[in-house]
């Protein structure tokens, strides 16, 4: 069941709109809907998640129905429909990563951060979740952090601790 957290209306900045303008140029005339995924990524990079108001604004910009945005945003797992921690640690949980210890990494993360999968830490800094194969099986276990989707590879409990401390200092 989809839960939607209502938020205040937002207005996209000129810079963000300029990014959209560049994106829609990539497709033939009348096919601007193709820019939907790149635009949603840009919005999420800016706000950390896709609020209903943000999705409605995207629909208006692309001149499509809001439902066309919602159905895409709910289909693709990279899009967050709830506010997240500033850093979302996404740990690969599939096949090869699991063979070399992804479960232990997630157990460690849960203890270290003190929140369950999908929850946000009290300071608002972190949330985490298991995700499916990240195509980095040779460097397993691995996790990614958006919005740049930097990969952290060959993870150990110690490396994870160091990473979290570094992110806290940022």
């Amino acid at each position: 069941m989809l839960k939607v957290t209502e938020t205040q209306e937002i207005n996209f900045s000129k810079e963000l709109i300029a990014q959209f303008d560049e994106m829609v140029q990539r497709y033939p005339q009348g096919k601007q809907k193709s820019a939907l995924l790149p635009i949603l990524h840009a919005v999420q990079a800016e706000y950390g998640w896709l609020s209903p108001s943000a999705m409605d604004n995207v629909a208006e910009y692309l001149n499509i129905q809001p439902i066309e945005v919602y159905e895409v945003a709910t289909f693709y797992t990279m899009f967050f429909l709830q506010p997240q921690g500033k850093y979302v640690l996404e740990v690969c949980r599939t096949g090869p990563c699991q063979l070399v210890g992804a479960d232990k990494i997630m157990d460690h993360l849960e203890k270290k951060l003190g929140v369950k999968e999908g929850e946000v830490t009290k300071d608002g800094l972190f949330s985490w979740r298991g995700v499916e194969c990240l195509a980095a099986c040779g460097m397993a276990p691995v996790l990614q952090i958006g919005p740049d989707y930097t990969y952290y590879e060959n993870l150990t409990a110690d490396k994870l601790d160091t990473l979290i401390e570094e992110l806290k200092k940022k």
Binding site: S34, A35, L37, P38, L40, H41, L62, V72, Y76, M78
Partner: peptide, 25 residues
Amino acid sequence: VQPGGGAYICGEETALLESLEGKRG
């Protein structure tokens, strides 16, 4: 370059084309 959204199914070529048109895969 077009980014996907984290859906394995979009590796199937017609799902990929749907996605590239801005739809569900």
